[in-house]
Amino acid sequence: MQNLMQHFEIIQKTPTLYALHVSIETLFNTLHHLRYQSDFITLSQLTCTDWIEEERFELGYMLTNLERNCNLMVKCFIGRDDVTVASVVTLFPQAEVMERELHEMFGVGFEGNDTLYDFALEDWQDLPPMRREFDTLAYVQSHYDFRDGRDDNLDVKEQIKIRKAAAKSAKEAQGGA
């Protein structure tokens, strides 16, 4: 770890969790270096976070070391539209299915992975569902019906106002009489 910290700008987040930010150009080479020149030989998770207001995704490669007691997040910002990242299947075979999932859920392309077919959704033509512009509520409203008989739901704040106004006018009427 000490050796790695000299080479890369690694931040320590917790005693067993480290983070490293790299650019998209150096991503593959960094992962290659870590896979073969360091203890971090396992890819345990491939995450993606949508920062829609900054117009970028954040990819996170969660690497775990041989002893399984230390995790290193290699993170990389990528654009949100038509973006392709080099696949790491050659380094970590388990990345195949993780990349397939991100391709389906976020629409991120992975160059070099030829198994990017359907993962959990079948024949999905809509927007990739985990992108933040995909509106779950709108999708539900256009595809499903809500249960009948719940139209008598009242807005409590409105009701308090109405009742206060009614009480006030009743008082005034009393005072006038």
Binding site: S44, Q45, T47, C48, T49, D50, M62, Q94, E96, V97
Partner: peptide, 16 residues
């Protein structure tokens, strides 16, 4: 919560 991603044992066991 902006993003919460689950890593269960089954993803790698069930595919790879």
């Amino acid at each position: 919560i902006r993003r919460m991603q689950v890593k269960g044992p089954s993803l790698i066991h069930g595919f790879t």
